[in-house]
Design a protein around this nucleic acid. Sequence first.
DNA 1: GTCTATAGTTGGATAGAC
DNA 2: GTCTATCCAACTATAGAC
Lengths: 211, 211
Amino acid sequence: MTTRMPVEDRRAQLVEAALAVAASEGIGAATVRRVAEEAGVALGVVHYCFADKDELFAALATRIVDELARAGSEGLAFDGATDLAGALHAAVAALWDTIEVTRGAQLLTYEITTHALRDPDLHAVARRQYEVSHAAAASLLALAADASGAAWVRPLDDVAGEALAFVDGVTLRWLVDGDSAAARARLDGFAAYLATQAKAGRRRARQRAAS
Amino acid sequence: MTTRMPVEDRRAQLVEAALAVAASEGIGAATVRRVAEEAGVALGVVHYCFADKDELFAALATRIVDELARAGSEGLAFDGATDLAGALHAAVAALWDTIEVTRGAQLLTYEITTHALRDPDLHAVARRQYEVSHAAAASLLALAADASGAAWVRPLDDVAGEALAFVDGVTLRWLVDGDSAAARARLDGFAAYLATQAKAGRRRARQRAAS
DNA sequence: GTCTATAGTTGGATAGAC
DNA sequence: GTCTATCCAACTATAGAC
C-alpha cells in the first residue's frame, strides 16, 4: 500500500521512525513492528532494509552519535566572554538549554549505552558514543580557554574527562528528579571549579593564532 | 518437583535469582521464565508469588536499593585520616574498590533507572534510588568532615549532589571504557576539589560530639 | 496453600507475490 | 528490486491439579 522507494531512502526513513519511537517511549518500545507502524510500512519492509533487528538498532545508534557530534560542534561562540569563568558559564548554560528541551533523547542516550554494554557486538557503539562526547568536550574546553586567553594547567583530556563525567551525572540526576534549578546550580559550581584549573594569560589576538 | 516452600521465602529466593540474572545478563534477560529457571522452579510459581512481572521487578528494584543503602552506611571509618583531603581520598578509594568488583550490579543500577524513568508506575523507584544514594553521599561527606575537624562552607546537600553526580558519571564512563586508572584519577581530582569546599577547624575530640 | 499444565499475546524472521 | 502474507519462537498470564 505504501509507495515504492529506493532501499537507502527507506532505511533513512525507518531510522527516523525508530528514533521517534525510542526517544518518546523508550528503547524497549522500539520493536520492529512498532517502527514499521510508525513509518507507515509493512512489517517485512524493515527486514528487507535491515538484516535483523540488531542492524536497525546499530543504525539508530549511529544516527544518534552523529547528531551528538553535530550538536557538539555548534554553539561554540564565546564572543562576549571576557574571562574563562565567564566563557565556561556561558557554555554550560547553552549546553543545558539544549539538554533540557530534549529529555527523551537524553534518556535514550543512556538507554543505548546500557543496552550496548550488555551486547558484545554493540560494545563498540557505546565506546564511540563516549569518544565523540569526549572529543566534543575537549574541543569546547580548548575553545573556551582560547577565547578568554587562558591555558589549562592540566592535560586537556583529563579536564574534558572530568567535565564529561560531571555533565553526565548531572543530566542523569535531572532525568530522575526533574530539578532544573539544581542541575544548573551544579553545572555553574563545576564551571567555577574548572576555571581554577587554568592560568590566565594574555588575551589572544583575534587575527593571528599562536603556534 | 521442587520442594514446597512458604510464599515469602519463595519470593526472596526469586528476587535473588532475578538479581543474579539481571546483574550478569542485563535487565532485558530477566524474564519471568529465565528467573524461574535460575531459581529452579516451574514458570507458574513466579506468578503465584508475584501478581505480574512488574511486581517482581519492583521487588528487585527495592532489593537493589536496600543493598545500596546498606553499602552506603558501611565503610565509614576515617580513623587514620589527618585532614579532610586525606579522608576524602580514602573514601573515594574505598568506594571505587567496591564499584570495581561489582560491574554487573553497577550496570544494572543504570538499567533499572532508565527502565523506571520510562514507566510512570515505576518512576518512584528511580527517585528512591537517588534519594538513598544522595543521603548516603551526604552522610559520608558529613562524617569525613567531622573526622578531620573540617566544616563544609556550602550546604551539605549541594556538595553531596555534586559528588553523587560526579561519581555517577565516572562510573558510567568506566563501564564503557574499562579504564580503571582514569576513573581513579578523576575521583582523586574531584576529592581534592571537594576539600577546597570546606574550611579547616579544630580537630574534633574523640570522646565527645559537639552539639 | 503451593505448584503444574496450558492458553493467549507479542515479536522476530522468511518464503514467496508483484 | 520492493513489498506482503505467513510462520515460528518466546514470553506473560491463568485455570485447575495436588
